[in-house]
């Protein structure tokens, strides 16, 4: 009996030591996706051997193309890897691993890799936001059941950016009202642009420019306001070719709906989506088709 116990113990010990040389792929993956705070005040993060420093982005946002490697977490150095997703803060990491966005409730803290830190700081503080980019969603089948959606950003060339800036700077008397646009639910094809710097490192996230194609007539509109007067900048013949090329080259970024609904109620919803206020549809030729209250 003692021999059996002794030999069992020896075999088990040998086996356990042999197995200690092996790793587990999911564990390796978790280790790759665990970042550590490199300073007490959490202004530095260590990930994959690189140090990322916190930036104060002010009113600007860093351009961010999500890597869709969702499971990054940052913890203090004493937290074991198996508990990183419970104890740590969730991180989004840029596709080229230069920017980290730490999600904290309703705001984000940004970190930039040390070797490109100066470049990003210069873009955040000094760079002029005189260029534009557009976004579109890329749908992919990664071989599994679900599709992965990637947001791609395309920087427009300097010539197009200059044309748009020139159009937006026309005097108010040359602008037209939104009422010039056609009617119909899907009447307009629209591309949304956002401002960025020339290297597409930073953007002013809140400011949006709409480029509208209304049956071959093109307009540019800066931001969204409910001022019905002088909102649309008509595209002249000199810029028409550049602007129309946007719709040809980037069909995936085109949105189709009635731009007038930003200023007028959508007939299918009601004014301001307020059910207590009875909606009265504007009079049209076929009054019998109106939904009147």
């Amino acid at each position: 009996m003692k021999k059996i116990f002794r030999s069992t113990a020896v075999i088990l010990a040998v086996v356990l030591i042999a197995f200690s040389l092996c790793s587990c792929r999911n564990l390796d993956s978790m280790r790759e996706h665990q970042a550590f705070y490199n300073s007490v005040d959490k202004s530095e993060i260590l990930l994959g051997g690189n140090i990322y420093k916190a930036v104060n982005n002010g009113n600007r946002e860093l351009m961010f193309t999500n890597s869709f490697d969702y499971s990054y977490y940052v913890t203090t150095k004493d937290v074991p890897v198996l508990l990183s997703n419970l104890e740590g803060d969730n991180l989004d990491v840029n596709e080229d691993l230069t920017v980290i966005k730490k999600n904290i409730y309703n705001y984000a803290k940004w970190y930039v890799r040390e070797d490109v830190y100066d470049k990003y700081m210069a873009a955040l503080t000094e760079a002029a936001l005189d260029r534009y980019f557009l976004s579109y969603d890329e749908y992919l089948d990664s071989g599994r059941v679900e599709f992965r959606v990637f947001q791609r950003n395309i920087l427009l060339d300097e010539e197009t950016a200059e044309a748009i800036n020139k159009l937006l700077s026309i005097p108010d008397k040359d602008k037209v009202s939104y009422k010039e646009l056609s009617d119909g639910d899907y009447a307009h094809r629209i591309i949304y642009l956002q401002k960025c710097d020339k290297d597409m490192l930073v953007t002013n996230g809140s400011s949006e420019v709409s480029v509208i194609n209304d049956n071959g007539k093109f307009y540019v509109c800066s931001g969204r306001t409910y001022d019905e007067e002088s909102i649309l900048c008509p595209v002249s013949d000199t810029e028409k070719e550049l602007i129309s090329k946007l719709f040809e080259d980037y069909p995936d970024s085109v949105d189709t709906y009635n731009f007038k609904y930003n200023f007028e109620p959508d007939p299918s919803y009601g004014k301001y989506h307020d059910n207590d206020v009875p909606y009265k549809a504007p009079a049209t030729e076929n009054s019998a088709d109106n939904n009147t209250v």
Binding site: L12, V15, S20, C22, S23, C24, L27, L82, L83
Partner: peptide
């Protein structure tokens, strides 16, 4: 318990103990 140690033998075992002691 011994069988669990065997099935997780290696890195995973060590990490499980680390997590346990941390908690």
């Amino acid at each position: 318990f011994i069988s669990f140690m065997i099935i997780t033998a290696g890195d995973l075992n060590i990490e499980i103990f680390k997590a346990g002691f941390y908690v």
